[in-house]
Design a protein around this nucleic acid. Structure first.
Lengths: 143, 143, 143, 143
DNA sequence: GTGGTCTAGACCACC
DNA sequence: GTGGTCTAGACCACA
């Protein structure tokens, strides 16, 4: 574990940008966005908190500065964070709610696609519900 | 609706490649793949049936011959259709089962993502199940 | 089993062109060539015997006349059969030996490729010999 | 021999895409695929290593960019390499094992064909084994 | 710079 | 006519 300047203290709730990987599916900037949304949405990154600078985060994640910049821009466009010229980047007041809302919307979208594929594969509603229940139990156990 | 030579007659089971659009999300060739998988998986395109030639389908869908070719190649690699030089392209014997299996796999993948987003958004298992039920009822009505 | 005019009698050694299929790998004309070579090489089609006419064979195999023509041309080029204008097509005197020789050559070619792939996959000579023995036993049982 | 930027130095283990030729049997893209599979399977191209870009390799091999692209796409579909937009193309973690497995499968296929041709040519099992042994010794000497 | 998609052509083998 | 291969370009998303 590497401690960096933007982790303020040895608090178990401290802010850690989740790891990203060029091997993972999806572009790097999207992985950064998702990671920050998760941290904000689940309350580990509270409103008003300063995010690491472009340069610092780029260095930590070993990605281009432009990649971090793009992620922050997208998050600002969604209202989850806001950049103050010369001061830094901060989690917005409504950041947590917006993050959760974004995840809810994304979930509905994915779910709609999943159900369409399922019904087209010939699965009945009962079978689909059963599959969802099983998956939820698996998730449970993983936590 | 354009009737072409490979649509045999006013048969309600006739073969119609679903429409595609460059405005729709996802590459054109993927839309073609998905459309044919759906037709094969749901039994409207039966094993042994000849698909339209690259050139014919390209003309109908108003896309490049190469885009159709790419879609057919991918479908052949999945074993759903098979191309015979000089003869044409045909639905494979196990095409229907493979199509449904592919849709099942895709559905599980999307569902897993949807559930992860849902739980991260703070939804409880009960709420998720409720959302799934509601969506399934909506689907029902659309049909 | 369909009896056709070129099968001269209910002799278990009678001449039967093996079935071909557009689903099988390889072009149709090659399947015809291979089938005739096998019949000639294994003595079921003896020197001097007349082969079916282009038209008759094309009809039986349900392929284009041009496809049969091409197969016969290739076989004549190899010296296995010879066409007498107006009389028909006949198995050559040295047809059997030439067929077996062609198969031997083809076998050596395939074997060389197989051994190269095997060694590149990391298999030792002993493992390769073992695989060959096992395959030969399987063949045995099938016969 | 042309030295290019992706060949790291006069290291005997250096990465060299094998030469291809339009005179050789088989399509160019297949030759590229086979060459890379061999390099990966035999450990000269290790997991994580970056392959040359489409454009660079196309220039070196003097083929179209598209031909290289097609080869890379096929290799990615087999799981041997993976392409990341904007980053490049890399040997996958399981690339070596998958390459060897692909070669083993291909070898079995060719061997089965070779044995069938051999037995049809009238060769006995003993003769076939003898031929295999001789060929293996020849290979030995070539190395 | 990289790869991802799409296009418009060519030539060949097969039927 | 069919599909199989190869070519030379375009434009876009990503880093």
């Amino acid at each position: 574990m590497v401690y960096t300047h933007y982790m303020l203290s040895p608090d178990p709730q401290r802010f850690v940008i989740p790891p990203i990987s060029s091997a993972a599916p999806g572009p790097l900037y999207q992985q950064i966005i998702d990671g920050i949304k998760r941290e904000v949405g689940e309350g580990r990154l509270r409103p008003g908190t300063a995010l690491p600078s472009f340069r610092a985060l780029a260095e930590d994640l070993m990605v281009s500065l432009i990649t971090v910049k793009r992620a922050y821009e997208d998050l600002e466009r969604e209202g989850i964070i806001h950049c103050k010229q010369g001061l830094g980047t901060f989690v917005s007041e409504k950041g947590a709610e917006l993050s959760r809302q974004a995840k809810r919307d994304q979930a509905r979208l994915l779910l709609r696609q999943a159900l369409r594929e399922s019904t087209e594969s010939g699965a009945t509603n009962a079978e689909i519900i059963k599959m969802v229940r099983e998956m939820l139990e698996q998730h449970q156990e993983e936590d």
